[in-house]
Design a protein around this nucleic acid. Structure first.
Lengths: 255, 255
DNA sequence: CGAAGGCTTGATAGACCTCAAACACAGTGG
DNA sequence: CCACTGTGTTTGAGGTCTATCAAGCCTTCG
């Protein structure tokens, strides 16, 4: 029997729901009723192994998915077999909200680590948005912030050297993981291989390796065993020319 | 006396309104009432010279702008003075719809050619969206397609060589300009300098020049005097590995 | 313990950049 | 009408960043 036993569950029944709510609250004000409505969303939750596709290029999904736990990414494959990762989705994120309005997938979404995902029928989301127009703003904002992150990555891919590109990504992930409580001070779990980082940064695995070594020798960060420690936050920000405006979070602990 | 005389105009009074309507119709179904409401939007129209900023990084705009005529771009400047252009906006586009929901600009928007722009107060747009929920879907879709284009550019910047990158951009612009009636068969006005192309493609001006020459020698395109002629559409698509899915237009004349 | 995946490092090659100079063309002014 | 200027294009030469290839090493896990 397969994993979809719990297709009649509601989001609120899972402990990780707090990450989703927290993420949305970092984006927009939510009333109690709206939060309730969110938690009442019907979901089917699945545990998915690493390196599995959730949605594929050209698919026409009927559900949107929420990341409850794990690292997920959007990516495209080129003819030659090369891969470009276009975003990392961390717990609390909704990687394919867009499929609500763009029927055909123009890219794939897959897990990078073992993940826990909640699938919500599009109809349920549509219904939610009809009943709570304020949530339209929240969800729309979320997709706009996604786009802002794409733009920032474009800057990195187009105009930053490898060193700054890596530094910038590490800064961004600290900010984003903090927002959902997944960072401790200046360190966080970064369960990615160097090859995966390379695919996101438009570099080769070998070069990522060399840059990481350089960052370590410069005393900025240590990345070992899927764990990242930022030893010199100011230095890292400078190396990546990092300015968190594009993340559109409250001027929180961006210290 | 300054240019804003016509601040009490409505969009429908300008002949270029058709481009805006046409653009939106290529994205979503519009009822007659919705089209009417669009045309009744209060606008102040301005003619702007080339190379002028419309909105700057860190601004908090109170209006959204529509491109009635001309080429406009989003861009960011790096510390070293380098520029990354993140999108080209052509007639019919709404480059800063996002400012409705993201208060602070995380990039700048500027003209590349002399342009005719319509500014709509955010309040008027908000009101429109409140009255016509179907337009929410259309506008949201528009911002999602923007994001899809960002993603496709990321692929180019990260994983395509200069040759394919240039080819891909030319394919994309043909499709987009056709959708608003600004292409003739396989040619269109491309009023950009090689330096501007370079800033969009993450290349140096010199290298763009060399690639253009190569494309010409290969018989794919001729770009001369701000005019582009595609001589071998199949070849160009192949060179850029171009697949128009990400533009999310009807499977129109993508022949 | 062996296998597999990931990490690390060296050597070589290629894509692209920077610098520099010449050329074309349009607009300006005497 | 013709220098003069400025912007954009074109081409060459040399240098840098990053990719590719290849090999050795380490860790994890059955």
């Amino acid at each position: 029997m397969h994993q979809r036993l719990n297709s009649s569950d509601r989001l609120g029944n899972f402990p990780e729901q707090s990450r989703v709510v927290r993420k949305l609250e970092s984006i927009a004000e939510l009333s109690e009723k709206e939060k309730q409505a969110l938690l009442d969303l019907p979901v089917s939750v699945r545990n998915v192994a690493a390196d599995q596709d959730i949605v594929c290029d050209k698919d026409r999904p009927s559900h949107s998915c929420l990341v409850l736990d794990g690292f997920v990414c959007r990516y495209k494959l080129l003819d030659g077999g090369m891969r470009q990762i276009m975003s990392f989705q961390t717990p609390g994120d909704m990687p394919d909200l867009q499929s609500l309005f763009l029927r055909v997938m123009d890219h794939s979404i897959g897990t990078l680590t073992p993940s826990k995902l909640a699938f919500v029928p599009h109809d349920a989301v549509r219904d939610l948005l009809r009943r709570y127009p304020n949530l339209v703003e929240a969800f729309w904002r979320d997709t706009l912030i996604d786009a802002a992150i794409f733009r920032e990555w474009m800057v990195g891919l187009g105009r930053r050297e490898a060193y700054g590109r890596v530094a910038h990504l590490m800064c961004e992930l600290l900010m984003r993981l903090r927002a959902v409580g997944l960072a401790n001070g200046y360190s966080y779990e970064l369960p990615l291989t160097q090859a995966e980082l390379a695919d996101a940064l438009g570099l080769s695995t070998v070069h990522v390796n060399r840059v990481l070594k350089e960052l370590r020798l410069d005393g900025l960060v240590v990345f070992k065993g899927r764990h990242l420690v930022i030893q010199d936050w100011e230095g890292l920000k400078e190396a990546g020319e990092f300015d968190p405006t594009y993340l559109h979070v409250e001027p929180q602990v961006a210290a």
